[in-house]
Amino acid sequence: MTEILSAAVIVGILTSAIRLATPYLFASIGEAFAQTSGVLNLGVDGIMLMGAFSAFYVTLHTGNVWLGALAAMLVGLLMGLLMSLISVTFKAEQGISGIGLYMFGLGLSSLLFKVLVGTVYTISGFPVIKIPFLSQIPYIGQIFFQHSLPVYAAFLLVPLAWWLLDKTTWGLKIKSVGQNPAAADSLGVNVDRVRYFSVCLGAVLAGLAGASLSTALVNLFQENLTAGLGFIAVALVYFGGWRPLGILAGALLFSVVNAFQLWLQVLGVNIQSDVAVMLPYLLTIAVLAFSMNRVRQPAALNKPFERGEN
């Protein structure tokens, strides 16, 4: 048990956590955009699967991992357009359209994998880039500065998303559409267009989240590669209170505990493995329940907007 507190193990836990948090950051921040504009997208996992497959497939055939990431973004955009069409234009019940999108993405990515690839291959994905000087810092260097590009990108996304949401007119529009679409509409904001934009941006990021798995973290594709990761990503948006910094905190908390439980098992600490696996889920609920800072959700979340509604 004392081993778990040694410097080497702590560095190991934090390094793992940075990697584990990567797909959650992409997907959760993307989902935060959609939800801030008032659209609940439960289909993140399906979009991630489609993104993961496209990135994998294009990389496998062109050998160019950048083209793979681009393909994931494009496919994410298409899935986002489909979700917007159904949830915004057709004003569908969002909780259910998301589940439909999930089933569709799960099915189609598996089908394409089966028909176009057939068996599991590993690919060479984004290489690990050691940042000069910074990676030499003891402990800190190993934890933060020896990762592949998508990992850095995910963390840089946090301040970028914060800036976009809090400091730009676009961000203001997204928020106003999510809080009070009727008022925004009367001020001349095109509610549907803003929602389309936000959902699609979120879907592009979900596509990248999938790509970060298949071309940086595990470097392969398999049916149902995400194994429900997208649903955790949606949950983390609530943990983070729709703010990029809060989402960062949630993703890190979940990932640190997950890395911690893996180390508990590796070091042979006497704990049932199933209980260890439960820990990140338990702690995420517990921390949120006992933390005092609570943010009200966007008032129009999950409510389709109809012009001229009273």
Binding site: G46, L82, L85, I86, F90, K91, A92, E93, I96, S97, I99, G100, L101, Y102, M103, F104, G105, L106, G107, L108, S110, L111, F113, K114, V115, E223
Partner: peptide
């Protein structure tokens, strides 16, 4: 046919039905 086709079609059915509610 691969069973994944079934999931794909079912997903489409859900999306279409939920959209038809409008």
């Amino acid at each position: 046919v691969p069973s994944a086709l079934i999931d794909t079609i079912l997903g489409l059915v859900v999306l279409f039905v939920v959209a038809s509610n409008l």
